[in-house]
Lab assay of single mutants.
Amino acid sequence: TEEYTYTDKEKADRAAKEWANRGYTVTVTQDGPTYRVRVG
């Protein structure tokens, strides 16, 4: 499991979509002003 942190919702959504397109399980959680994209 890897985790990426973004401050921009659009970038987080785009990253999540790209990982999902590659067949990974993706979870996006909002943590205050940041968005965490957990992959795998």
Rank of each mutant, 00 (worst) to 15 (best):
K17F: 11
W19H: 03
R38S: 12
R22E: 06
D13L: 15
Y35E: 00
Y24L: 05
T7V: 09
A15L: 05
T25I: 12
D8A: 06
A15K: 06
R36Y: 12
R36Q: 06
E10R: 10
N21G: 11
E3V: 13
V39H: 02
E3H: 06
W19V: 01
V39D: 00
D13M: 15
D8L: 06
D13C: 15
T1Q: 11
E18I: 12
Y6W: 04
G23M: 03
R14N: 11
A20L: 13
T25P: 06
V39L: 06
R38Y: 11
N21K: 14
G40I: 14
R14I: 11
D31Y: 08
E2L: 15
V37F: 04
G32F: 03
V37H: 01
E2F: 15
D8R: 05
E2Q: 15
T1R: 09
R36K: 13
V26S: 03
T5M: 10
V28M: 08
T27I: 10
E10Y: 10
G23L: 03
T1M: 13
T25V: 12
G40W: 15
A16G: 04
D31Q: 08
V39C: 05
D8V: 07
K9R: 12
G23D: 02
A20S: 09
D31G: 03
N21D: 14
R36E: 03
T1G: 12
T25A: 09
R22A: 11
E3A: 05
D8G: 04
T34W: 14
A16V: 06
T34H: 11
N21Q: 13
E3Y: 11
V37W: 01
R22M: 13
D31F: 08
R22D: 04
E10G: 09
T7S: 10
K11D: 14
E18Y: 15
A20F: 11
R22Q: 11
E10A: 12
Y35P: 00
R22T: 04
V28K: 03
T7P: 09
N21F: 09
Q30A: 08
A12N: 00
W19S: 01
P33T: 12
G23R: 02
D31S: 07
Y24N: 02
E2N: 14
T7L: 12
Q30N: 07
T29H: 09
Y4I: 05
T1V: 14
V26Q: 00
T1L: 12
G23N: 03
P33H: 11
W19G: 01
G32M: 02
V28F: 05
T27D: 06
D8E: 08
E10K: 10
A16T: 04
Q30I: 10
Y6L: 02
K11Q: 14
Q30L: 09
A15Y: 06
R36W: 06
